[in-house]
Design a protein around this nucleic acid. Structure first.
Lengths: 168, 168
DNA sequence: TTAAACTTTCAAAAATAAATGAAAATAATT
DNA sequence: AATTATTTTCATTTATTTTTGAAAGTTTAA
């Protein structure tokens, strides 16, 4: 297999994985493209490589910047903007975890917290089942939350070096 | 807040979270409904509670059964089928992890494995960047995979008792 | 065996999400 | 300050996903 083919396969696989996890396929593909590019790319280049429109490329790149996965670069003498991706997988994993925690877990935790406080007739099976299920899910969510918090503070070496040795 | 309202909020929140993670909103809602129901429900009841069509209810329930999150129940003297959800959050978390690993992580690992074997000119920056990025992502994916394998084998008490204490 | 009760299927419709592209806005250059 | 290069916006179009509902299929029981 040659590089060009491998690159396409990688972009395709990354896009598919992204879409299965609620991330826009094109966004994951642009990310993949930048990940394997040694140089920062222009919007034009992204458009050409992935055959997408200017508007799509522009919005997708902005989203990636919002996620903290891509940065703008200005080259002296050049008027165009260049884009490059953070390449450290540990940093990528942390940024994605951080962003999804903030956008999705935190709001759910807030609602679960409210729902666990509901009061009612302990004799009523409907009430009891509701309370038990919600309380249990809340517990799990809090554990996930705590784990993510710790991970976000952790050092790469600690993460790769220690955590995974616990699981063996 | 009363039970009926809380139930709706829970179903809505669970549906939203599901859709943000690539799980059909209705499927997450049906799951939420069964989670908080003390008794197994019929297709009719699911249809009525969530205002969805028969076809939708039927397919969604089948999907939930495929995921191992819901089971059919037959009541003696009753002709209809009843559906109830696994309520142990640890079991739910494991089943979801197991299923998504099988459906999404395993295929990606296979592709990444192939891509890391590509050979080329080490002097070429395009080649070097590709190789480095793919190798790093492969490493991360393998670590995630190993962690999930361990989790799937683990006992609840071990998981809740030990793991989360490491992160504190 | 046949009629009623219930479940499954799937083509078509509806809803939702994503992409386009031309126009507007902004920024740099002459 | 006018021209040109570049980026951003967003109404519209296109693609994808989800839902519907009626028909076909299956099971049970009289």
């Amino acid at each position: 297999m040659e590089l060009a083919e491998a690159k396409l396969k990688f972009i395709e696989a990354w896009g598919k994985l992204g879409s299965e996890w609620g991330i826009n396929r094109t966004m994951a593909q642009v990310h993949a493209l930048l990940l394997v590019s040694p140089e920062a790319l222009t919007t034009e280049e992204v458009m050409a490589e992935l055959s997408i429109s200017r508007g799509n490329a522009n919005m997708t790149l902005r989203d990636l910047i919002d996620w903290g996965l891509v940065e703008k670069q200005h080259k002296t003498g050049e008027r165009k903007e260049f884009f490059f991706a953070e390449k450290d997988t540990w940093v990528i994993a942390r940024k994605v975890a951080e962003e999804r925690k903030k956008r999705e877990l935190d709001p759910v935790l807030k609602i679960l917290g409210q729902l666990t406080e509901i009061e009612g007739d302990e004799k009523d099976p409907a009430f009891k089942t509701f309370k038990t299920s919600v309380t249990d899910i809340n517990k799990l969510a809090k554990n996930v939350n705590k784990t993510l918090d710790t991970m976000l503070k952790a050092e790469e070496s600690w993460f790769f070096g220690s955590i995974f040795k616990i699981f063996k």
